[in-house]
Amino acid sequence: MSVTAEPDPASLIEAYFERGWTDGLPVVPPTEKSVAEMLASAGLRRDEILGEIRGRNTVVVAEKVAINAVLAGCRPEYMPVVAAAIRSLCHPDFAYHGPASSTGGSAMVLIVNGPIARRLGLNSGNNAFGQGWRPNATIGRAVRLTMMNAMQTRPGFLDRAVLGNPGKYSFCFAENEDDHPWEPLHVARGLRPDQSAVTLYASNSLYQVYNQLAAEPEPLLRCFADALSNLGLPNVKGFNQVLLVIAGEHAEVVRQSGWSRRQVQAFLIEHARRRVADLKRAARLPGEPTPADETTWRYFLEKPDDILIVCAGGRAGSWSACLPGWGNKWTNAVTTAIGEFP
C-alpha cells in the first residue's frame, strides 16, 4: 500500500505568502482540477492569449488568469467576468502602464452590467462598494492578483502607488439597472441591453457626496460639480474622465425630474470649474495670479462622454459618489462584452 501525503492546506497558504503571490490575505491554493474548471467556465484554452501589455513586454495567458481567479476565491462561473476585465486591462485605450504604475495608486473599478450580474448575485444595492458579496469581493481581487502575478505589477516596483487605496484589493459592483433614470452604462456605451459587459475604469479616490434636501437635480449636481473641481484633483492637468455613482434617493430625484443623461453631463461640464487665480494661489498652476485670473475660469471637464454615470447603492439614504479618474487623459474606460458559456 502506498500513501501519498496531501499537502496541508495551511502550509500551502503560508507558502503562497512567502513567494509573494498574495495581496496580503490568505488565498485558495489552486489545483489542476480547479484551474481547469475555471477555464472551462469561460470557454478558454489554457494557452489562449487574453491580451498584451506592450509597454511591459507582457502577454497575458488564460491559464495564468484562471490560477489567479482560483487564488482569489472565485467560483468558476465568475471567470467570464474576470476574463472580460483582463481584456479591458489589455486594451490600448486603457493604456495600462499609466494607471497601473502611477504614484496615484488607482483602483481598477469594475462595473458589471447585463444578465450575468443578476445570475452571479453581484451586489448593486446596499453596500455596493463594501464587504459581504463573494462575486464583488473575488472578481476584483482576481484582477488585482493577475496584475501582480502575471502582469508584473508589484508594489514598490512597477506599482508605485504613494498611498494606494483600499479599492486596490477589489473594486467590483453591478449597476442597478432596475431603478435607473436612463439606459444602463453598457447600453450608453454601445452594447445591447441583453448583453452582459464589464466596464473597467481607473480611479484613485472615492468621495461620497451628501445632499438630503435637494428635490431637483440642479442643487444636487452643484455638489457633484464641486466635488469634481477640488483644488487637489489631478484633473487640473486636463480633462480626464470621471465616474459618478448615483444612488437611491438621488437617482430618484434625477429620474422624477426627467433630466436626460446628456443634460446632467452638460450641467457638470459647465459647473465643474475653478478660477485661475484660485488654482495659482494653490500652486496647481504656475505663476502669480493676475487681475484677469480672478475672473477667468478653468474648466475641469470637456466632453459629455468623459462623464460616466452609473446607478448603484441602497434606496434609502442621501449619498452618492464621485470617483475622479486617474490623473491624466492617457487612460480611458473600456467596456468589454462578457461571453456566456452555458
Partner: peptide, 14 residues
C-alpha cells in the same frame, strides 16, 4: 526613489 522601478522595467524587457 524610482531605482527599483527602473530595474524592474529593464528586467521585463530582457
Amino acid at each position: 526613489p524610482f531605482r527599483a522601478t527602473g530595474e524592474a522595467m529593464a528586467t521585463s524587457w530582457g
